[in-house]
Structure formats: C-alpha cells, structure tokens
Design a protein around this nucleic acid. Sequence first.
DNA 1: TCATCACCTGGAGA
DNA 2: ATCTCCAGGTGAT
Length: 282
Amino acid sequence: MQEFKKIDLDTTINSGQVFLWDKIDDTWYGVDGSNILKITQDPFKISSSEKKASDFFRQDDNMEKILQSIKKDKIVKDAVLRFPGLRLLRQDPFQCYISFICSSNASIQNIKQMLKKITIKFGKRIIFGGHEFHTFPSARKLANSTIAELSSCGLGFRAKYVKKASQDVVSGRIDFNYLKKSDYKTAKNVLVDVYGIGDKIADCILLFSLEKIEAFPVDRWTLRILRKYYFDLFDESISRSITKKKYEEIHEKIVRHFGPFAGYSQQFLFKMERELNNKKWL
DNA sequence: TCATCACCTGGAGA
DNA sequence: ATCTCCAGGTGAT
C-alpha cells in the first residue's frame, strides 16, 4: 500500500478540524453529533455508538488524484510529504457550525473546553466502549437554552451567537441539506448572514462539513503562510486587516493557484506551519 | 469601502 | 502573586 493511502489518525485529529476527541489507551474517541466514534490506528478500525453510515474519514475521496492536483508548488509538496496521512474529515454539520462559531478569537484548547462543557450541559450522556461520553446537543436544545446557561459554558460574547445561530437552524433559515446541494458561493452567502459567522468561519463549516472542498479558510495562520511562501502571488491582496473584498480576492487567486481541491492544500499548509511553530493541538 | 476597536475567558509568559 | 497579552474573528462605529 502506498504511503498516501494510509490515514494517520494522530495527524488528522490534531489538525484543528475537530475538538471533541480524546485518546484513551491508543484508541481515539470522538463526538460527532449524536454519534460517538471509536477508532484504532493499527489495525485501522472504526466503530460507533449509532449505526449510521457516514464516511467520517472521506475514504471515498480519490487521494491520488487530489494530491496530484494540489501539489502545484514546492511548499505544498513538502507539506504533503511530511504529513502523507493527513485527511479532511466529514463532520456533523450542526456540531461543526457551532464549533467554529465558538472558535472566534479563541485558542484551540479554549474552544475544546467550551464545546466539552456544552455537551455535558446539553448533550445526552452515554456509555460507549466502557467510557462515559456526552453527545453534541440538537439545534432545538441550544436554541431553547438561555444566554446565562450558554455563558456558564465559558462562551463569553459567543453565547449570543450560538443561541441565534441555533434558532436559525430550528426555523429552517439554515438548512444544511440545502447547503450541501448548493454550490460554494451560494452556500457561503447564506452562512455569512448568520450572526457570528464571517468569511473565515463560513469557510471552515463549508470545508469540514458541507462538501465544499474548494473552501480555503483564511485565518491569521493562513495569512502568515501566504505572506511567507506566496508573497509573489498575493502581494497586493494581503494587508494587515483583511476586508471582505480582500478575502474574496484572495480566495479567487487561491482557487486559481491550488485548483478545485484548494481546501486540502490549506489543511496541509496549516498543519505544517503550526507544527513548525510548535503550536499545541488538542 | 476601509480601518479601528471592543469583546468573554482561560492559559502562558513576564 | 499579579499583570499583561494573546488566541484559527466578528460586529459595530
């Protein structure tokens, strides 16, 4: 089996996509919506608390073709070479949506803590594989919660975002099935209208849970990467504060350079640069 | 349209 | 011990 076909669990889970994962005795456990996943690396085996078929690891993706497509330059080539087992994940959309709304101006460890508290306070407690877990709550549950309850999970100013965003799901204003079927631009325009969701967070939700592999979240790390390695390409577009128009301009250039699987290239570059700076993950 | 700034909170570094 | 600063941004001037 060629190296790129093997999924590297540690690398993938520690790449900033998911927050509710823990490793217990060489086994990874994670919360994905109402489902709890249990995964071992060797042998690679997945089991779950619910019997629902979801390809969490995107094993349907043609990695040979995707990697071929994104290796446009030496930087991405190096990143792919260093983390050949890194993958994008296919997350439960509502959990992903709330997770990244919580991520604004917060560290990964802080985000993890907020989400953990949300599951304990609002999720369903279950025992799986001999361990206790709490599922991610439904939109209705969070929509009906009070700001005070949400604040007690350490959300701070994000509490009001989470409540409103949950209400938008309950009312049907946000329909994840519709967004999955829509093209990138249409879906993005819908998401950025939600209170608490801007360009970056919308792209995270699109990439990690709504099948938009061309989405390329631009955050302070990505911006740093573009400045450091791709200055010649993005030159004028990169200013200190990034406006909506600049963001679109950058995204256009990104897709032109990295191609239709740009989101994959983002994941490799992000992983590489954070490792390079010894940043912590979960 | 664009640039600043406040914002909850917890953890790291001075 | 106490303080400052920052963290995968966003909304309001």
